[in-house]
Design a protein around this nucleic acid. Structure first.
Ligand code: FES
Ligand code: FES
Lengths: 132, 132
DNA sequence: ACTTTATCCGACAATATTAGTCGGATATGC
DNA sequence: GCATATCCGACTAATATTGTCGGATAAAGT
């Protein structure tokens, strides 16, 4: 259905939440999860993933939590999405070479063209454009 | 993963196959399925769907099969995709209203913006652009 | 009329992907 | 030391996609 995964949605919601805070203030997973009715554990993973990728900062221990680290203008949406949900493309064919149709396929080229158009949309868009 | 379903792929492959034929010549489901190693029954459904939507013509009985009916320049890709795999959007939230986050959601607007950009890509593209 | 081959269609089963859960680790402020 | 936070992998559940089956209707050839 050509849709983003919930993990990406949760990530965006969380980032937007963090944006509403002062630079140095921390928000815990629990706080965010409760505010938007997101399953804690799942959100936790997403936040951890973003921390590993240096989009946010993690502070451990009690009173710990997350805060924004990166400049959202510099985070390209293609990278962001691929970071969270893996490769971004209209079909599998073009990642794994095991497509049964591969030899006889007559739509490889056209599909690639569309792929590029979609990627372009996200490439020309930063995190700031969305959370902004 | 933001991908098109196989049904759409199969549909495109089939249409492209039909394009390689003379206007009046018919191709059967079996013929196409075998040429590209597509499961017959699944392709059959997709072809039936396209026939119902008057993109192709169906002729029953032995010697029957399908032939192109519509002018591909007039078939918009958004319509085509939605015809085959249902509504086209980045998230479910914006179709069913049952999203738990709906009340507190802080990314509705931005997501809608992206949605529009993606739809625009397909809106400005006809079947002819792909099967070209 | 009967057989063969084709589209047609709904219901079903298998598979893959996504979403969510659990158990236990490490870090740190009090 | 205890409470509370991040961290992480492995697991289960839910959902969506993909593929299958059984039986119907249509029409050409015999
Ligand atoms: S290569 Fe897989 S369908 Fe074209
Ligand atoms: S309305 Fe569902 S996440 Fe925004």
């Amino acid at each position: 259905m050509l849709k983003l995964t919930r993990k990406v949605e949760y990530a965006l919601i969380a980032l937007r939440h963090l944006q509403g805070k002062k630079r140095s203030q921390l928000s815990s997973t629990k706080e965010i999860a409760e505010a938007y009715h997101i399953p804690v554990e799942l959100l936790a993973k997403t936040l951890q993933l973003m921390a590993r990728n240096e989009i946010i900062d993690a502070v451990q221990g009690p009173l710990g939590g997350y805060r924004i680290k990166a400049d959202f203008h510099e985070i390209n949406m293609t990278d962001f999405i691929e970071m969270i949900e893996g490769p971004l493309g209209l079909t599998d064919c073009h990642f794994d070479t095991e497509c049964v149709q591969a030899n006889t396929c007559n739509i490889k080229k056209p599909i690639n063209k569309v792929n590029k158009s979609i990627r372009a949309v996200f490439n020309n868009m930063t995190l700031a454009d969305i959370t902004g």
